[in-house]
């Protein structure tokens, strides 16, 4: 058996020092070593998007990403930082209120991918939203309510930003 190696990962702003086998994927380490089971395991080959996390703000399939490679990077998962993340919370509220959650297995990956999308493009068109969802399968909703939820989240975040604006403008 190959020896364990020490790694240091920053997940949701918290540092974790753990010993893992070097071939473990980030998905496996999150779920098994750190007990963060919000990130889901499904196809195991980067097709379904249920395992999506953000690495330095970019959405990646954690089933195809070795944990050792994630060292020195900021990993963000559906669990969010301990103090909460307003963007994540807005997206989650929109998914709930627009009926975008059915079985909920794709939802964490969809929510995390939405965060990356809206960070890059705060007002995406319907086509841009659909493009961003390629690689994220949902078998329940037919995507309609997911697209509507992302539109709603974008509006919600823009409203929040415009309320903040006077304070930050000077």
């Amino acid at each position: 058996m190959i020896d364990l190696i020490p790694v240091s990962l920053r997940v949701n702003g918290v540092r974790y020092d753990i010993d893992i086998r070097p071939w473990r994927t980030l998905l496996e380490v999150l779920r098994e070593s750190l007990g963060m089971t919000g990130t889901k395991r499904s196809c195991g080959e980067g097709q379904c998007g249920t395992c999506t996390v953000l690495i330095d703000g970019k959405a990646v399939n954690s089933c195809l990403y070795l944990a050792v490679e994630a060292q020195g990077k900021e990993i963000a998962t559906i669990e969010g930082p301990p103090a909460g993340d307003p963007a994540l919370q807005q997206i989650q509220r929109s998914f709930v209120s627009k009926g975008a959650v059915q079985c909920g297995f794709c939802t964490p990956g969809m929510v995390v991918a939405t965060k990356a999308l809206l960070a890059d493009n705060p007002a995406p068109s319907e086509d841009e939203i659909r493009e961003a969802l390629v690689g994220h399968l949902c078998r329940c909703t037919g995507y309609v309510q997911i697209v509507e939820a992302i539109q709603d989240a974008a509006r919600g975040m823009q409203d929040a930003a415009s309320q903040m604006a006077p304070k930050g403008s000077d």
């Binding site: 089971t37 919000g38 989650q92 297995f105 964490p108």
Partner: peptide
């Protein structure tokens, strides 16, 4: 909205 949707959207539903 589904009652369990907030839990699922937060990744806290236990499958």
């Amino acid at each position: 909205p589904k009652k369990d949707a907030p839990l699922k959207a937060a990744g806290r539903a236990e499958f």
